[in-house]
Nucleic acid binder design. Structure first.
Lengths: 216, 216
DNA sequence: GTTTGTGAAGGCTTTCACAGCC
DNA sequence: GGCTGTGAAAGCCTTCACAAAC
């Protein structure tokens, strides 16, 4: 077990590797629940349908976390992955779009779990403002985005508006000083320099299933 | 404009290509809204931040839909993509897990839009059974899954339970005769021969953003 | 003995660039 | 003139296989 490389050439790490680190983190959680404290890359791969060389390679970008002849300490590795992903600090989110999806995400466990904290849910529809959400937040006016981002030190914006509003909301988010956007609207948001945008289109996944059902 | 290849070697088409077809479909919808009836792959690429050669190559797996020197007819291409993805027939879904996410997906537009139809939402918690959802469905007993799938001719199951229940639910779905599963539980569901499973872990996407925020 | 970390190989995906067609 | 469809090239990602470490 040696050093954890804190200074990573960000651009050298692929998104696929980063996504798998999240998966490995889920695996570590599960192993600890099962009382397993040490595991080899091969055993991890067998158990979760992964490839052992890929696990080792993904981790090796960030340091040498294993012991040859032994494997990885689950508890230690979990902590390293948390640090690598930046999950050891609080990340504040604001959701714009208080429809069903936005409201649901307010206390979706994958969001409120970890150190992600939803500190506001906004909508531009006056009839929705003031509505309570299951998580206990009240819906606020989307016009107050800039103010809310600054006062509550928000980093990440989540877009759950209809597609037609998403581009404008993303520009307001960039102007408000948010650093990253998770966009659930089925549209590719464009041209915001300096703000990181990730689009997740739930419909695409269903349509992929439809394709495979159609073509035997 | 020539033939649409109806008999596709399914295994030769990558998931990445299929996912992009969904994206192209969104683009066609948008272009028609804007009144654009013909577009070249280059113009499409410029407008939606795609690569023109990739668009042409993706489409060429399925037929020759363009006219050299002119481009693609938007309305026709849209219809071809709908047929390729199998979106021209009704696909019935059942959701298991009537928490916030499951309830929200009941009438999420990306789901209820197209020809996807949610025909049931189930939960194993007796206190939830009978609850109304925003879409007008009542929550039913998860024990009735097999019966509901058969009676209502359901093809696709959506898992929105906690991670701890997901494996068991996926096995019940396979036993009930469902052909595909969209799994939102943060766990990789294993070992169901003959049923197609796609896992979408919303937490992974947030953690990816966290990684990039952490490493400059 | 076992397992990691890693160069090399193999496979897959994207992009280039142009012949063929309008 | 313009644009598609596509082989070839480049780039990227995964997997193999083994030296180094325990």
């Amino acid at each position: 077990m040696t050093a954890y490389k804190r200074h990573i050439d960000n651009s050298a790490i692929s998104d696929l590797t980063v996504a798998r680190l999240s998966v490995y983190l889920r695996c570590m959680d599960r192993l600890l629940e099962l009382g397993i404290e040490t595991i080899s890359s091969q055993a991890l791969a067998d158990r979760f349908n992964l490839n052992s060389a890929q696990i080792r390679k993904d981790l090796a970008y960030f340091g040498e976390f294993g012991v040859r002849g032994v494997g990885y300490n689950v508890r230690e590795l979990r902590q390293y992955v948390i640090e690598i992903l930046g999950l050891d600090r609080e990340r504040r989110l604001v959701i714009v779009g208080a429809g069903n999806l936005g409201t649901a995400l307010c206390h979706y466990s994958g969001f409120s779990g970890g150190n992600f904290l939803v500190v506001g849910i906004l909508d531009s529809d006056p009839s929705r403002i003031g509505d309570p959400t299951p998580a206990g937040l009240l819906v606020e006016d989307a016009a107050r985005l800039g103010e809310i981002v600054a006062q509550r030190r928000v980093e990440i914006g989540v877009i759950t508006t209809p597609a037609s509003a998403a581009q404008a909301v993303s520009e307001q988010m960039a102007a408000a000083g948010l650093k990253a956007i998770l966009n659930f609207a089925p549209i590719r948001v464009r041209g915001n320099e300096g703000i990181l945008v990730k689009t997740v289109d739930l419909g695409v996944h269903l349509e992929e299933l439809s394709f495979h059902l159609t073509h035997v």
